[in-house]
């Protein structure tokens, strides 16, 4: 997350207002995963990523898209609704938003146990995150069935 002082003052004020109005959610149940070199890791993005064949995200979307672990970047696009972040960085290097190559490298080096077969993408910019509870539970079940030990949440 960026420093508010690095943003345009209008955007900074907007985010500060959103943060102050955001309802408290957590904490959730504390879970201790296996050692990292034994753990399978999945990425959960809020960048509005999806495969080109998938339906794009709508305003206020509470649903999610699945991203296979063998995704190629020429098949990965972004339909996040906000105009307030730098898409050119994702265009140049998709790993800066969705670091699947980095996970593969960490797995090859034995630093993590493995890369999940499936990863998940939401669209952020939701003032009340509690509205994601149902879909969050759903992908939690899916990740459990996929043998995922660690969910690496990457906000945009």
């Amino acid at each position: 997350m960026v420093r508010l002082s690095d943003l345009h003052p209008v955007e900074s004020d907007h985010l500060r207002m959103r943060a102050e109005a955001m309802p408290a959610i957590g904490p959730g149940e504390w879970i201790t995963p296996p050692q990292l070199d034994q753990a399978t890791v999945a990425i959960v993005s809020t960048a509005g990523l999806h495969r080109r064949i998938d339906p794009p995200f709508a305003v206020g979307s509470l649903d999610y898209r699945i991203i296979p672990g063998d995704i190629q970047f020429d098949d990965l696009v972004l339909s996040h609704i906000s105009a307030n972040f730098d898409r050119s960085a994702f265009g140049q290097d998709p790993n800066i938003v969705f670091p699947i190559d980095r996970l593969r490298e960490l797995a090859s080096a034995g630093e993590i146990g493995g890369v999940a077969r499936w990863h998940y993408s939401f669209m952020g910019a939701m003032p009340d995150p509690s509205q994601f509870e149902e879909t969050g539970e759903e992908i939690g079940q899916l990740m459990a069935q996929d043998g995922v030990d660690v969910a690496f949440l990457v906000p945009i």
């Binding site: 730098d86 140049q92 938003v97």
Partner: peptide, 13 residues
């Protein structure tokens, strides 16, 4: 890091 760059640096694995 700037919004849109959560991993920080482009093309720097």
């Amino acid at each position: 890091f700037d919004l849109g760059r959560p991993l920080g640096a482009i093309d720097d694995s």
